[in-house]
Simulated scan of single mutants.
Amino acid sequence: MSDSKTQHRIRVALVDDQTMIRQSLGYVIQMQSDMEVIGEASDGEEAVELISSITPDVVLMDVQMPKKSGIQATKEIVMKHPEIKVLILTTFDNHNYVVEGIRAGAVGYMLKDADSQEMLDLIRRAYQGEALFHTVTAAKALAEVLHTQFSQPEPPTDKPLLLDDLTERELDVLQQIAYGFRNDQIAQNLFISEGTVKTHVHRILHKMGVEDRTQAVAKALRHRLVK
């Protein structure tokens, strides 16, 4: 990871049609030394215009909003600004929302009743490039999307990536990343130290020519490196 990601505050944008929700989230975020709220929008249409002008690092995006849904807004934002991480924010643990959010390019899914520490942790981890779909419904939806993309991958448009480019252990770690596991969980699953996992992740990103874990998974799917 680039050291620059630890040298400035995480820039967060809030998108929700309920003023009270935006105020509550904003209050908690503004209390943190490593993040700040740089903009708010009350509907999807406004969000697309706002995000293009302020380019935040992370967006908390409500699903059901007037004028344009959070899913459509996410799709448009990610297409224009693939470096921006969008976390879907909703009241219900809904399978369809998760599937649509993943396909739109969201990197995570958060329930509105999550406690403040969990929310802050998700923002920080999304910023670092992790995929965050950890409710039971979200896990099943992610598996469905991964299966569909693995069965019918898009033709690679970048330099061919061969299995030989990654070691067997690096492929194991890459598969774990695709499942959405954190470094400590990967270490436990593969019976290796967390420091070793970090080393493997660094090498994987370097070999694949990507900046973060989300891009690594997307490229791995295109090249059939993960299931």
Rank of each mutant, 00 (worst) to 15 (best):
G39H: 08
E194C: 08
A73M: 03
P156M: 14
K219H: 06
Q18H: 13
V210H: 14
M31C: 14
L120W: 05
D121A: 06
D34C: 12
V98R: 00
L142V: 04
E45I: 01
I88S: 04
N94D: 10
G101N: 00
G70L: 00
P155K: 09
G209K: 15
E144A: 06
K85L: 06
D93E: 09
I186F: 14
S151P: 00
G195E: 15
D43E: 11
V107K: 00
D16W: 01
Q185W: 08
P66I: 04
D34G: 13
N189S: 10
N189F: 04
M20I: 08
S4E: 13
K68S: 02
M31V: 06
Q149I: 11
T74N: 00
A114C: 11
P160A: 14
Q32H: 10
P66D: 08
Q32V: 10
G26Q: 00
M31A: 12
T196M: 14
L25G: 00
K140H: 07
F191V: 03
V48I: 09
L225S: 05
P156W: 11
M119Q: 09
A141P: 02
L89T: 01
Q18C: 08
D62L: 04
A220Y: 02
P82M: 11
V28H: 05
T148W: 09
K140T: 08
F92Y: 15
E36D: 14
Q175Y: 11
V99Y: 03
G195Y: 09
Y127H: 13
I102M: 02
I186V: 09
K80A: 13
A47V: 04
N94S: 10
V86T: 02
A178F: 06
V48E: 03
K5C: 11
T196R: 11
L120D: 03
N94Q: 04
T135A: 08
G39K: 06
A218N: 12
M31H: 07
P153T: 11
D165I: 07
M65Y: 02
L174I: 06
R213C: 10
L190M: 09
H223K: 10
G39F: 07
K227Q: 14
T74F: 02
T157L: 10
K68V: 04
K198A: 12
P66W: 08
R169K: 15
F191I: 08
L163Q: 12
D165H: 01
H200E: 15
R213Y: 12
N96C: 11
G39D: 08
R203N: 14
V12C: 15
G44C: 08
E211A: 14
I177T: 02
Q30E: 15
I186C: 02
N94C: 14
A73L: 02
Q175R: 09
A73G: 07
M20W: 05
D172G: 07
E211C: 10
L205E: 12
Q64G: 00
S42C: 07
A143E: 01
M110C: 06
I84Y: 01
D113P: 02
T214L: 14
L171K: 10
I102L: 07
S116D: 15
A139F: 07
T214I: 12
S69C: 01
I186E: 07
K67W: 05
R22Q: 06
L122D: 06
A104C: 01
E170T: 10
S33N: 13
